[in-house]
Deep mutational scan, measured.
Amino acid sequence: GTEIELESKNGQREHYTATSEDEARKIIEKAVRRGIKRIELRGASEQLIRDMQEIAKQIGLQYRTDGSL
C-alpha cells in the first residue's frame, strides 16, 4: 500500500495507509480540499507521484516522497 502522512496548517498530523492508488488519490484530494500544509508519500506509484506533483504545483503545497520510484 501507499503510506500517506498529512500535516494540516495547525500542525496536526494524520497517517493513512491506502490499499489502492484510487484510495490514495481520494485521501489526497480530501486533504487538499480541507487545506493541508504538507504531504508525504511512501510507496506511491510513479503515476501517483506525478499526479501529486501536479496538485502541489497548482496549490503551492509542500510534498515529499521517499524517492522509491
Results as ranks from 00 to 15, higher is better:
2 T>F: 13
2 T>E: 01
2 T>I: 12
3 E>V: 10
3 E>N: 09
3 E>F: 14
4 I>W: 01
4 I>M: 03
4 I>L: 04
4 I>C: 03
4 I>S: 01
4 I>P: 00
5 E>K: 10
6 L>G: 01
6 L>S: 01
6 L>E: 01
6 L>Y: 08
6 L>P: 01
6 L>T: 07
7 E>N: 03
7 E>P: 01
7 E>V: 13
7 E>Y: 11
7 E>W: 13
8 S>K: 08
8 S>H: 15
8 S>I: 12
9 K>L: 13
9 K>R: 11
9 K>Q: 12
9 K>S: 12
9 K>P: 09
9 K>E: 14
9 K>A: 11
10 N>D: 13
10 N>F: 08
10 N>H: 08
10 N>V: 04
10 N>L: 07
10 N>W: 10
10 N>T: 12
11 G>I: 01
11 G>H: 03
11 G>W: 01
11 G>C: 12
11 G>A: 04
11 G>V: 01
11 G>E: 01
12 Q>P: 04
12 Q>C: 14
12 Q>R: 12
12 Q>K: 12
13 R>K: 12
13 R>S: 06
13 R>P: 03
14 E>K: 07
14 E>W: 12
14 E>G: 02
14 E>F: 14
14 E>A: 06
15 H>E: 04
15 H>S: 09
15 H>L: 15
15 H>A: 06
15 H>G: 03
15 H>K: 10
15 H>D: 02
16 Y>L: 06
16 Y>T: 02
16 Y>P: 00
16 Y>M: 04
17 T>M: 14
17 T>N: 07
17 T>Q: 08
17 T>L: 14
17 T>S: 11
17 T>C: 13
17 T>D: 06
18 A>K: 03
18 A>E: 04
19 T>Q: 13
19 T>A: 13
19 T>S: 11
19 T>H: 14
19 T>G: 11
20 S>Q: 03
20 S>V: 01
20 S>M: 02
20 S>I: 02
20 S>A: 04
21 E>D: 15
21 E>S: 06
21 E>N: 06
21 E>I: 09
22 D>R: 08
22 D>I: 11
22 D>Y: 08
23 E>K: 03
23 E>F: 04
24 A>S: 02
24 A>P: 00
24 A>E: 00
25 R>W: 10
25 R>P: 00
25 R>S: 02
25 R>H: 04
25 R>C: 03
25 R>T: 02
26 K>C: 13
26 K>Q: 13
26 K>L: 12
26 K>H: 10
26 K>R: 12
26 K>Y: 08
27 I>N: 00
27 I>H: 02
27 I>P: 00
27 I>R: 01
28 I>G: 00
28 I>H: 00
28 I>Q: 15
28 I>N: 00
28 I>F: 12
28 I>T: 01
29 E>V: 07
29 E>W: 14
29 E>N: 07
29 E>C: 15
29 E>L: 12
29 E>R: 08
30 K>V: 08
30 K>G: 12
30 K>S: 13
30 K>H: 12
31 A>T: 02
31 A>F: 09
31 A>G: 05
32 V>S: 02
32 V>D: 00
32 V>P: 00
32 V>Q: 02
32 V>K: 02
33 R>F: 07
33 R>Y: 07
33 R>Q: 14
33 R>D: 07
33 R>G: 10
33 R>H: 12
33 R>N: 09
33 R>M: 11
33 R>S: 10
33 R>K: 12
34 R>K: 11
34 R>D: 12
34 R>H: 11
34 R>V: 13
34 R>E: 11
35 G>F: 03
35 G>M: 03
35 G>L: 02
36 I>C: 10
36 I>T: 03
36 I>R: 03
36 I>G: 01
36 I>M: 05
36 I>P: 02
37 K>A: 10
37 K>C: 14
37 K>Y: 09
37 K>F: 09
37 K>L: 12
37 K>Q: 09
38 R>Q: 05
38 R>W: 13
38 R>H: 08
38 R>I: 06
38 R>T: 06
38 R>K: 11
39 I>L: 09
39 I>V: 07
39 I>E: 00
40 E>N: 13
40 E>K: 13
40 E>D: 06
40 E>M: 13
40 E>G: 07
40 E>Q: 13
41 L>I: 13
41 L>P: 00
41 L>F: 06
41 L>Y: 02
41 L>E: 01
41 L>R: 00
42 R>Y: 08
42 R>I: 08
42 R>D: 03
42 R>H: 10
43 G>T: 04
43 G>R: 07
43 G>Q: 07
43 G>C: 10
44 A>Y: 04
44 A>T: 02
44 A>P: 03
44 A>W: 02
45 S>M: 02
45 S>A: 02
46 E>W: 07
46 E>R: 07
46 E>S: 10
46 E>N: 09
46 E>D: 09
46 E>L: 10
47 Q>C: 09
47 Q>G: 08
47 Q>T: 09
47 Q>F: 05
47 Q>N: 11
47 Q>R: 09
47 Q>L: 07
47 Q>E: 11
48 L>T: 05
48 L>F: 07
48 L>A: 02
48 L>D: 01
48 L>P: 00
49 I>A: 06
49 I>Y: 10
49 I>G: 03
49 I>N: 05
49 I>R: 07
49 I>Q: 10
50 R>I: 08
50 R>S: 08
50 R>E: 06
50 R>V: 07
51 D>V: 15
51 D>T: 10
51 D>M: 14
52 M>N: 00
52 M>H: 00
53 Q>R: 09
53 Q>N: 11
53 Q>E: 12
53 Q>C: 13
53 Q>L: 10
54 E>S: 09
54 E>F: 09
54 E>Y: 08
54 E>V: 07
55 I>K: 03
55 I>V: 05
55 I>Q: 03
55 I>D: 01
55 I>Y: 10
55 I>A: 03
55 I>C: 11
56 A>T: 05
56 A>W: 05
56 A>K: 04
56 A>Q: 03
56 A>C: 13
57 K>N: 11
57 K>R: 14
57 K>C: 09
57 K>P: 03
57 K>V: 07
57 K>F: 08
57 K>G: 07
58 Q>E: 12
58 Q>V: 06
58 Q>C: 12
58 Q>F: 09
58 Q>M: 09
59 I>R: 10
59 I>Q: 14
59 I>S: 14
59 I>G: 11
59 I>E: 14
59 I>P: 02
60 G>F: 05
60 G>R: 06
60 G>S: 05
60 G>M: 05
60 G>Q: 07
61 L>P: 03
61 L>S: 05
61 L>F: 12
61 L>Y: 10
61 L>G: 05
62 Q>T: 13
62 Q>I: 15
62 Q>Y: 14
62 Q>W: 07
62 Q>H: 13
62 Q>L: 14
62 Q>N: 06
63 Y>P: 03
63 Y>C: 15
63 Y>R: 02
64 R>G: 14
64 R>M: 15
64 R>S: 15
64 R>H: 15
64 R>P: 12
64 R>A: 15
64 R>D: 15
65 T>F: 06
65 T>A: 14
65 T>D: 15
66 D>E: 09
66 D>L: 04
66 D>W: 02
66 D>I: 04
67 G>W: 02
67 G>A: 04
67 G>T: 08
67 G>P: 11
68 S>M: 07
68 S>T: 13
68 S>A: 06
68 S>F: 05
69 L>V: 11
69 L>H: 07
69 L>R: 02
69 L>W: 15
69 L>Y: 13
69 L>M: 12
